[in-house]
């Protein structure tokens, strides 16, 4: 049996009077990279926030390693990369990491490891506000890795990165999963789907498919995930 990292049951979230997540039920297994794919505005970020425990939920349950999302005991075990980089623009790369490391109570050696992990060794003494967009998101990613988290939630971490770096990051995600972490990555770019062990396809606040990439292609007979996504959407419209 697969180890459960995240267990979501009948999750419903209303934001500003709008139903943003509508009755979601799925699991995110440990030891795998699970991709959350869907168009912009479908609710990916809201779902990730609910798992991390910073989004109030309207109904249903979200459990992480068996505990309710947002429990104090989980705070040390989750690494969360928000969609917009949440780091201090007026601090250097190293100062940002050193600060969050002190908050987490991890050593300075971990700071150096994480700087290397996101390939920012040369920029370590630069002020974050003067880095490129992609470099800033890597700083944010490095912060999330500091605590050696067992669940890593990444909201569109590869947007705006060059292909070489993108490939490196996906390799990093798989290495972390191989070490036992549950890795949950969102993207609105369908061509990243093939890099995931498992896929959740989302549309309008609902999960419309939950399968491995290969099984999805086989089931729909489509040549790529984008076509499979469109097929599933079309089939759902017909059902209605």
């Amino acid at each position: 049996m697969m180890n459960k990292g995240v267990d979501v049951t009948s999750l419903r979230v209303v934001r500003g009077g709008r139903l943003v997540l509508d009755d979601l039920t799925f699991e995110v297994a440990a030891g795998q990279v699970t991709g959350l794919l869907g168009p912009s505005g479908c609710g990916k970020s809201t779902l990730m926030r609910a798992i991390v425990g910073v989004q109030r939920i309207t109904a249903g349950t979200v459990r992480v390693f068996g505990e309710p999302a947002g429990s104090a005991s989980l705070r040390r075990r989750i690494g969360y990369v928000t969609q917009a980089p949440s780091v201090y623009d007026d601090l250097t790369v190293a100062e940002n990491l050193a600060f969050f490391a002190r908050v987490l109570g991890v050593g300075a050696d971990r700071v150096e490891e994480c700087v290397r992990l996101v390939d920012l060794v040369e920029q370590r003494s630069q002020v974050v506000g003067r880095l490129s967009g992609g470099q800033r998101s890597r700083v944010s990613l490095a912060v999330a890795m500091l605590g050696d988290p067992a669940l890593i939630v990444l909201d569109e971490p590869t947007v705006g990165l060059d292909p070489v770096l993108r490939k490196d990051l996906w390799e990093t995600f798989h290495r972390l999963a191989a070490e036992g972490a549950a890795v949950f990555v969102s993207s609105h770019v369908m061509d990243e789907a093939n890099r995931c062990d498992r896929l959740l396809l989302m549309r309008d606040g609902r999960v419309i498919a939950d399968d491995s990439p290969a099984a999805l292609l086989e089931r729909t007979g489509a040549a790529d995930i984008e076509t499979a996504f469109l097929d599933i959407v079309a089939a759902a419209e017909v059902d209605r």
């Binding site: 705070r75 949440s86 969050f100």
Partner: peptide, 13 residues
């Protein structure tokens, strides 16, 4: 507004 507060509050702080 930068999201750093949300990040900090999701940490053991």
């Amino acid at each position: 507004t930068s999201g750093t507060l949300e990040r900090l509050l999701a940490m053991p702080l």
